[in-house]
Design a protein around this nucleic acid. Structure first.
Lengths: 207, 207
DNA sequence: GCGTTTGTTGACCAAACGGTCAAGTTCATC
DNA sequence: GATGAACTTGACCGTTTGGTCAACAAACGC
């Protein structure tokens, strides 16, 4: 993980350029569909130059994925066990939605990887990801047991938050195609809808 | 569309075999990531033999996609304007969920195509798909106006049904990784959760 | 300035790719 | 069981792919 060599300015800049270009290409073509020539072209570098900074196509992809996984779970970690259950879960949904808004390429990269069987991150899923989700599910269950949330399956609640929020990044083309020529406010409308969806679902009934 | 030539038994069988094998490969690798050798191998045929039945790799993919689009919208078309609004929408969600259960490969094929920008079905999305969705959204809005549904954005309601149901096919690896080693009943639990989610969301409040 | 490290690339390579073809084999029909 | 159509495939072709390498250019430390 730790790079022994101290990075020069040029290294830092070019590595970033390459990663950004590679994110463009990988997120729209998948790993196998992407080519080094595409990446090099998008980065305005020659192919050998790209391979001077990364040992292989796979190395670029792996680095992108590991950086992504690192930040992908932050919204979940930010859940506060002390807060109001409904506020916390709606806020979590909003953070996930914000990630779809700001990092759609990263979301699509992740989607591509999972849809294609997650060959490179299976361990991350059954390991750290599962642990974090299980912990959070237990917290949600404790809120339900305390009568502060309407009863729902915690795991599937989390899945549904993932699905509904990431949908707007991953299926962006479809959403745009159907909503056009509506203005670009559709993401705001989507967020409002999702707030309603989860508020109604989670609010306990009095009886 | 109409095949002038009367298909022989062998043609019918082999074309089906190839399409089934290609569905396996395309749905997990995407169009560019899949190779004719993989498809031929999965179909237990030689590569030239595959190309005897389909003129190109693209022809196989196109045929799969068009067959898929044909059936993909059936659940939406089955919405009955005369039925009870909540029952109809929950039933629609159930039909979509059933498609994820029975045709996960088709769902992933579609997901791959959309995530990668829908280069081959953009027209289908802005045309027939948009029309059908707009019509359905208008129906839902009329139910809301009549006070028979809680107010929600109809388009985003439809999107959320797509997202939540397809998630269990497209992100199957992730769902399994997190729910393991739970038994294989997780799809039943998911469906029950989704029934709850949409029933609570759509039921009008008395005030 | 000057040598050394760092950065850059055209030319190249072996493998894999989509697709072709000629030559053979199997099948249906009479 | 002969004949033509339908089916099958090993060998092959041109291109693209990920990756290498030697030779050159820029930047850095002194």
């Amino acid at each position: 993980m730790t790079e022994a060599r101290p990075q020069t300015r040029i290294q830092k800049k070019n590595r970033e350029t390459i990663l950004d270009a590679a994110l463009d290409v990988f997120s729209t073509e998948g790993f196998r569909g992407a080519t080094l020539d595409q990446i090099a072209g998008a980065a305005s570098l020659s192919k050998p130059n790209v391979l001077y900074y990364f040992s292989s196509k796979e190395a670029i992809y792996t680095e992108l994925l590991s950086k992504l996984l690192d930040t992908w779970l932050d919204p979940l970690r930010a859940l506060d066990a002390q807060g109001d259950p409904i506020d916390e879960l709606v806020a979590y949904m909003r953070r996930k939605f914000e990630m779809s808004r700001q990092f759609p390429r990263e979301s699509r990269l992740f989607a591509n990887e999972i849809v294609q069987g997650a060959p490179r991150i299976a361990d991350e899923i059954t390991g750290p990801l599962k642990s974090l989700v299980d912990t959070t599910a237990a917290l949600i269950q404790s809120w339900i047991d305390a009568g502060r949330l309407a009863p729902v399956d915690p795991h599937h609640l989390i899945f549904s938050i993932w699905a509904t929020t990431q949908h707007y990044a991953d299926f962006d083309v479809q959403v745009r195609g159907i909503l056009a020529p509506t203005g670009d406010s559709h993401l705001d409308e989507a967020e409002a809808f999702l707030v309603t969806l989860y508020t109604r679902t989670l609010t306990p009934t009095s009886d």
